[in-house]
């Protein structure tokens, strides 16, 4: 019987770690998808916003833990600060690197985005450190989750639940609020939205800020879970989340959620049952295969060029 038990618990372990990764990918994929929907650009610096968010969180959490605050208070304040700062970074990145290029060829905007990404990485290396630093474990383990700790990791369950909550909030925001409607109309037809009196600049800024907030949220959760960060965390997670967004069909919000979860789970099972050496190779291969064989993703349509 223990054999079956082990197999089952190993499966559950992989499943829950897959969902955890998946929800992080989904949170970031939403950022890519929202920006892509509104201005048709791959926000290459999105992963770096995630990374900067983690570092801001580290500083806030560090100061507070030196001052011996309660762990829940630290988590709350850290999340708030990281999200506000990430929003400010997202806002500024758009103003500096993308806004002047709105009429320029897309390649120019992409190069500018990559430049911004390199800049932010170096900025963190120079201002903080090029090495891995440990991040305080901030996620509490409430009693009701301890009951299932033989099957599922409590922090993982919390990450999954809170990510899902914030994603649902986002969906409501986009469906119900004025900003959400403005975002959707701009992604349909920017010229028309402009004629209808929608403030395009403001909406684009809002989109960047929203995406950044989600990224920072994901960054703090995962940093507190894994326990260490460095300047490079944004790059790999960024590319993988972009993969998730493309997998689901870039521009589609449901697609981003689905893509994130599918990628997280497949990655977790593949590394769990096969080999972990090629974890990243695996994700990149998925990306390349989708882009080549189904560039429209699981949900979505391809735009064809008018001749």
């Amino acid at each position: 019987m223990t054999g079956t038990y082990d197999i089952l618990s190993y499966f559950l372990e992989l499943f829950s770690s897959g969902l955890t990764r998946g929800s992080i990918y989904a949170l970031l994929a939403l950022g890519y998808t929202l920006v892509y929907g509104v201005i048709g650009l791959i926000n290459f610096a999105h992963g770096e916003v995630y990374m900067v968010g983690a570092f801001i969180g580290l500083i806030v959490a560090g100061i507070m833990s030196i001052m011996d605050y309660n762990i829940l208070a630290i988590l709350f304040v850290t999340l708030t600060f990281a999200m506000i700062y990430a929003a400010a970074y997202g806002f500024t990145i758009e103003k500096v690197a993308y806004k002047p290029l709105r009429q320029a060829p897309r390649l120019a905007a992409l190069i500018s985005a990559i430049g911004m990404s390199i800049f932010l990485r170096e900025y963190v290396i120079l201002a903080q450190t090029p090495d891995f630093v440990s991040f305080p474990a901030l996620i509490p383990k409430p009693a009701f989750l301890l009951a299932i700790k033989n099957y599922l990791e409590p922090t993982e369950v919390l990450i999954i639940l809170s990510s899902l909550t914030i994603m649902v909030l986002l969906l409501i925001l986009i469906k119900r609020t004025k900003v959400g409607k403005a975002m959707r109309s701009i992604s349909q037809d920017r010229e028309m939205a402009l004629l209808l009196g929608i403030n395009v600049n403001k909406t684009i800024s809002m989109t960047f800020m929203l995406g950044s907030v989600l990224a920072a949220f994901a960054a703090i959760l995962i940093a507190a879970h894994i326990g260490q960060i460095n300047y490079n965390i944004g790059f790999i997670v960024g590319i993988k989340s972009f993969t998730a967004a493309v997998l689901g069909g870039i521009g589609s919000i449901r697609g981003a959620l689905l893509g994130g979860l599918v990628l997280g789970l497949t990655e977790s099972f593949a590394t769990g049952y096969f080999s972990s050496d090629y974890e990243d190779v695996f994700a990149f291969s998925i990306l390349i295969l989708i882009l080549i064989f189904k560039p429209s993703g699981l949900i979505g349509t391809v735009a064809t060029e008018k001749v």
Binding site: L41, I42, R106, L107, L110, I239, F242, D277, Y278, D280, V281, F284, S285, L287, I288, L291, I292, P295
Partner: peptide, 27 residues
């Protein structure tokens, strides 16, 4: 494989290709 891809998708795929080559060598 990337013949049909344009612009930003091409950029991402070539980036992925670079990472794959490097990771394969590493592992």
């Amino acid at each position: 494989p990337v013949l049909r891809l344009r612009g930003d998708y091409l950029a991402i795929v070539t980036l992925g290709f670079h990472e794959i080559v490097r990771l394969v060598v590493e592992n």
